[in-house]
Amino acid sequence: MLLSACSSAERGPVIPFFGAYFPSWIACSLIGVFGAVIIRLLFIKAGIDAVMPLRVIVYLFLAIAIGLLSSILLFGR
């Protein structure tokens, strides 16, 4: 009863990759980082990046938001 949460029936989402299993949060964080880089390139091209205050914090939160959104959309968590 005390170890029922450790059963193999409720495993976290994993991604099989060349025979190894990686946790889904790694993929979601990479998607978030790449998404933030793409948005940064678009902001530079549009001229928004030059006038944006606190760029590092904005891009950090964009990466987190994209990572969490990809987690919800891809894995339902």
Score class of each variant (00 low, 15 high):
residue 50 A to C: 06
residue 29 S to R: 03
residue 39 I to M: 10
residue 14 V to K: 07
residue 59 Y to S: 11
residue 68 L to N: 09
residue 20 A to L: 06
residue 1 M to Q: 08
residue 3 L to G: 06
residue 65 A to F: 12
residue 22 F to Q: 02
residue 76 G to C: 01
residue 15 I to G: 05
residue 47 G to K: 00
residue 28 C to S: 07
residue 38 I to S: 02
residue 16 P to A: 00
residue 75 F to E: 07
residue 43 F to Y: 08
residue 26 I to T: 05
residue 77 R to M: 03
residue 29 S to D: 11
residue 10 E to D: 15
residue 51 V to C: 06
residue 74 L to T: 04
residue 52 M to D: 01
residue 16 P to Q: 00
residue 59 Y to D: 05
residue 77 R to V: 15
residue 40 R to T: 10
residue 62 L to Y: 01
residue 18 F to C: 07
residue 44 I to R: 05
residue 10 E to N: 14
residue 63 A to D: 08
residue 43 F to M: 12
residue 53 P to C: 12
residue 35 G to F: 02
residue 19 G to V: 01
residue 22 F to S: 01
residue 43 F to H: 09
residue 36 A to Y: 02
residue 20 A to M: 08
residue 24 S to R: 02
residue 34 F to L: 14
residue 28 C to A: 10
residue 71 S to Q: 10
residue 64 I to P: 01
residue 7 S to V: 10
residue 10 E to S: 14
residue 43 F to D: 14
residue 41 L to M: 13
residue 13 P to I: 02
residue 73 L to G: 00
residue 49 D to C: 02
residue 61 F to Y: 09
residue 32 G to H: 00
residue 19 G to I: 02
residue 46 A to C: 05
residue 41 L to E: 13
residue 55 R to M: 12
residue 43 F to R: 00
residue 69 L to Q: 04
residue 48 I to N: 01
residue 54 L to N: 15
residue 5 A to N: 14
residue 21 Y to P: 02
residue 50 A to D: 15
residue 31 I to Y: 04
residue 76 G to A: 06
residue 2 L to D: 11
residue 63 A to H: 07
residue 6 C to D: 06
residue 23 P to G: 11
residue 40 R to Q: 11
residue 51 V to Q: 05
residue 58 V to T: 04
residue 58 V to K: 04
residue 25 W to S: 06
residue 66 I to F: 10
residue 68 L to K: 05
residue 16 P to C: 02
residue 33 V to R: 00
residue 38 I to L: 10
residue 69 L to D: 01
residue 41 L to T: 01
residue 41 L to G: 14
residue 49 D to F: 11
residue 9 A to N: 02
residue 21 Y to I: 01
residue 32 G to F: 04
